[in-house]
Structures are given as structure tokens and as C-alpha cells.
């Protein structure tokens, strides 16, 4: 099965603040990211704030120009396609953003927001087709069709996020990247949105890249989880698999699991994430790792494993011992 999305050695470096004279410092946001996403799959991306999750999603959506690596969407290399060449392909991958409050232009009505994708793509819709399309999209995300005429400030956060999802669905995409879609919503609304996402995936046969820092949510929703630290993938693991990287173990230990029968080995981590302006030569996690050895500081561990479970750690037990 060809992957819907395949990312190889993807990296992005932001130029630092510009001065009139002298060289800029460079900020390494994402580096050496490799993964494949198969049709129908939900891949979760987790990590602390600032670990490059959102940058990764924006790179894949080609909102930022990647500085290294390649992105293949359905076999086509889209890494450096021009805006015009990319335009028809954009119908097939879309993004839903974290902040529903600023993701819709406050001057647009909901109907205008939902038809903007067609307008940008140059799809001429008759008045009747336009109305039908708006109704279809609102029904898809279970919103009242009467909302079409209202402005975003009349809607609740959850309703706005539904509009954001409907707008991403407008052009009939195969892949949707979600950048913490539930992070700014109430817990009760979060649950509704998550159920909506699962239903949409079933009904429309979608593939999701789901960015979140909510580990319980990712565990519930995703088939595989990619753990990022300082712009790099430290582990990709299938749902429910025991974590091998000390960072993943620490993350999971920090998550709340209300089951007294599950005895967990608590890994404590201290200290701060190193800066992307000055990425360490060895393992990025070395400064905080409880198991750190000299090799970790000197040599950066590669991501090794089979198609299902891969880990970037010198000290992780070999994958073969699993199962």
C-alpha cells in the first residue's frame, strides 16, 4: 500500500531576528523527521510546547518552505512545488488550526468562510450550488444551517472549531492535519469534537495527522503516536505498545491513568529543553535523561526500528525483544 504521506529527513530552520549588520542566528525548529502515513490511519504527534509539532504540520501543509528533506504526498514530491503547481494538490490535504477564535476572518460570515476554499481554487459555484454546498458542509459537522449568515463572534468556541473543520472538508481532502484542535475548548466540547472527528474519518475515509499534547486523547484516538523532542522524533510507537525511549516513558508517567492496578515505573525528568538556537551535538534529551551515558552526549542516536515501532536511543532495548 503506498503511503498517503511520506516524509524523509524533513527539517526546518528559521532565520533569527534580522539586524542591519552581521549574520543572523538560526533557529532549528524541526530536523531529520522521517515517517510514513498510511491511508485511513490516525498518527498522533505529541511533545512539549515548542518541540516543533506545529512547525512540522505547517511544513507538511507547505505553509513554511522546508529547508531540508522531502515531502511526498500520494507519491508526488511536493517539497518545493511552486504555489501554482501546488494549488490543485491543496484540495487533497488541508489543515485545522488550534485557535478557533482567530482561524476565521472576523469580517466573514460563516457562509463566506465555508465558500472561500472554492473561491480561492477558482471553482465557480452557482447561487444554488453554493447554498447546497454550505448546507452540506454544515450538516457534515452537525451545525444548524441557519448559522450560515452569522459572523464568527456569534458562535461559541466549539461551533467555530466545527466551522474550521467544515471549511477544511470543503474541497474533499484525503489528509487533514489537526494542530491541537481541541486544546482551546472546554472538556465537554472536546469530547464532542473528538467523536465528530472519528465519525468524519469513517464516513469520508480520511487520514489524520493529529497534533496534541493531551496524551490521554492521543492514546484514545490515534493508531500510532510520534513523540517529538527539540524538533526531532524520539520514538514512533503503535497504540498501547510499551514505550522504549526514556523521554516517552517520562511523558507517559506524567499522564494521568486512573487505574490502581497499573503499576508504573515513574521516571522523573528535571531541567529545561535546550534551545533550538544551539542544538546539542549528541542526543537532544541527554541533558535531562536519567539514564544518560557518555555516548549519548557525543553521538546523536538514529531512529531505528521496524515499520511499526522505532526509537532513537542508544540505551533502548532492541525492538526484537518486544511482544
Amino acid at each position: 500500500m503506498t503511503p498517503i504521506l511520506s516524509v524523509e529527513n524533513l527539517g526546518h530552520t528559521f532565520p533569527g531576528p534580522a539586524g542591519w549588520f552581521g549574520a543572523r542566528k538560526r533557529f532549528r525548529a524541526v530536523g531529520e523527521v522521517d515517517f510514513e502515513l498510511h491511508p485511513g490511519e490516525i498518527l498522533g504527534v505529541v511533545g512539549e510546547s515548542g518541540c516543533g509539532k506545529s512547525t512540522l504540520a505547517r511544513l507538511i501543509m507547505r505553509l513554511y518552505e522546508p529547508t531540508d528533506g522531502t515531502i511526498r504526498f500520494e507519491g508526488t514530491d511536493i517539497t518545493h512545488l511552486s504555489r501554482r503547481a501546488l494549488q490543485p494538490l491543496r484540495r487533497r490535504f488541508q489543515m485545522v488550526f488550534q485557535d478557533p477564535y482567530s482561524s476565521i476572518d472576523p469580517r466573514q460570515t460563516i457562509a463566506e468562510a465555508l465558500t472561500e476554499p472554492f473561491e480561492v481554487q477558482g471553482v465557480g459555484l452557482s447561487a444554488a450550488a453554493r447554498r447546497a454546498e454550505i448546507e452540506r458542509l454544515l450538516a457534515l459537522v452537525a451545525l444548524d444551517p441557519a448559522m450560515a449568515g452569522s459572523h464568527p463572534h456569534h458562535l461559541s468556541g466549539g461551533q467555530k472549531q466545527r466551522v474550521g473543520i467544515a471549511r477544511a472538508l470543503a474541497l474533499g481532502p484525503r489528509l487533514i492535519a489537526f494542530d491541537e484542535p481541541t486544546a482551546s475548548l472546554d472538556v465537554s466540547v472536546q469530547a464532542q469534537v473528538v467523536e465528530l472527528l472519528l465519525r468524519l474519518r469513517r464516513e469520508l475515509d480520511l487520514t489524520y495527522l493529529f497534533i496534541s499534547h493531551d496524551l490521554a486523547l492521543v492514546d484514545y484516538l490515534c493508531d500510532r503516536v510520534m513523540v517529538m523532542y527539540l524538533g526531532r522524533v524520539v520514538e514512533i510507537l503503535p497504540r498501547g505498545a510499551p514505550p522504549r525511549h526514556p523521554y516517552t516513558q517520562a511523558l507517559l508517567a506524567a499522564a494521568f491513568a486512573p487505574d490502581p492496578k497499573v503499576r508504573r515505573h515513574i521516571v522523573r525528568i528535571t531541567g529545561e529543553i535546550p534551545s533550538g538556537y544551539d542544538v546539542p551535538t549528541g542526543c537532544a534529551f541527554a541533558a535531562r535523561c536519567p539514564l544518560v551515558e557518555d555516548t549519548c552526549r557525543a553521538i546523536r542516536p538514529a531512529l531505528v526500528g521496524d515499520g511499526h515501532h522505532a526509537v532513537a536511543c542508544h540505551l533502548a532495548p532492541p525492538i526484537a525483544s518486544e511482544s
Partner: peptide, 26 residues
């Protein structure tokens, strides 16, 4: 820097659309 600009870019909007339809009216 508003997210709605990124959303428009995601649909493939060019600089003219972004400037004239999203930024200037606001």
C-alpha cells in the same frame, strides 16, 4: 500572523487574495 491568513494559504490563496480580501478590509 492571524490564523485565518494561514487558513487561506492552505486553500492555495495567492498574495493578492490575502492582501485584498483578508488583510486590508481588517
Amino acid at each position: 500572523r492571524e490564523t485565518f491568513v494561514e487558513a487561506s494559504l492552505c486553500f492555495g490563496a495567492g498574495p493578492a487574495h490575502i492582501l485584498l480580501r483578508r488583510l486590508l478590509p481588517n
